[in-house]
Write a protein that binds this DNA or RNA. Sequence first.
DNA 1: CCGTCAGGTTAGCGATCATTAACCTGCGGG
DNA 2: CCCGCAGGTTAATGATCGCTAACCTGACGG
Lengths: 184, 184
Amino acid sequence: MSRPPDRRTQILATAAELFASRGYHGVSVADLGAACGISGPALYKHFPSKQAVLAEMLVSISEELLQVGTQRAEAAPDPTTAISDLVDWHVDFALRHRPLIVVQDRDWESLPEEARERVRTLQREYVDLWAGQLRLRDPELDLPTARAMAHAAFGLINSTPHSGLLPDPEMHQVLHRMALGALS
Amino acid sequence: MSRPPDRRTQILATAAELFASRGYHGVSVADLGAACGISGPALYKHFPSKQAVLAEMLVSISEELLQVGTQRAEAAPDPTTAISDLVDWHVDFALRHRPLIVVQDRDWESLPEEARERVRTLQREYVDLWAGQLRLRDPELDLPTARAMAHAAFGLINSTPHSGLLPDPEMHQVLHRMALGALS
DNA sequence: CCGTCAGGTTAGCGATCATTAACCTGCGGG
DNA sequence: CCCGCAGGTTAATGATCGCTAACCTGACGG
């Protein structure tokens, strides 16, 4: 709908990188402004608060993960394919948005209450999307175990921003194979 | 050597839990003191700084992981057993020290320079311990890939503090099976 | 022309924090 | 008896931070 020019998205992208490398509390609004070529309180022309920057980042990625993930799962002909496609999508996302992945599970608790609740809900739905496919493939599996497995798979895939030891295509392949092995 | 009575270890344990749940920067020395039954600056009778508390926590767990891990690997008759034992040890450690695991990969960057370097070195050695066993088991595997795999396995296992969906013994079993599957 | 308003600027306020200073207290050894 | 010190206390300091206020400027529609 709204086409807020450009600064806004620049701020979001810059904030993601700074938050990822120094932590939400380790970045001052002055730092963030400076990294965007403006300085300090000019941020408040675009966001109501520093927390709002974080909130917008985290809510939007949680929404994207869940929405596209749901599409992929629905488009798959059977649970096994669905799981492979979910892994593929998640790996791709994690590799393209390393900083966001880091911020998401590190600075989660610095969110304002409302956004924190929203992110938690979206994440739970995403976990259950995975858990559901796992249980379709293996009806013996109970729900708590399926959820734990989804969580562990996310941990595996999300570890990628911290390592960066391999070029992206190779990394993608390794993570895909390992995740499927873990979920086998 | 030194048997500094008790407060010191109480502070370390309390700090681990507080740092884990609110982040290093989210906990003031007043908070930490209060949680120990003393208040504020009394901490400085036991540690030279807030950073020193963090440093001691993280250095000591990195040392323990590496030292015991090395023992286990050396005691194993073959690489396949070594890998299984390493996984077992790491899962056990992660389940027994959830807060430390969280702090280790969240607040790593708040360490003073010297300690950060030490932790990095220990972690790299630990990664290489795993990578070495993987390459003994499968000589085709190149070193960077083996390292990436070790990293991903840590991500899988270390995800456990964030989920807490299953009782410890079941969780142990699930993580052990998944990690071996991922590394297969 | 001129008013407005988006998007900047700098100065400053109030809170919070890590750390230091100065002081108190109880206890064990000589 | 008293000294010294381990382990507390409260008060103060200086830095940093998020955010607000007040002001500037240039583009643009009428």
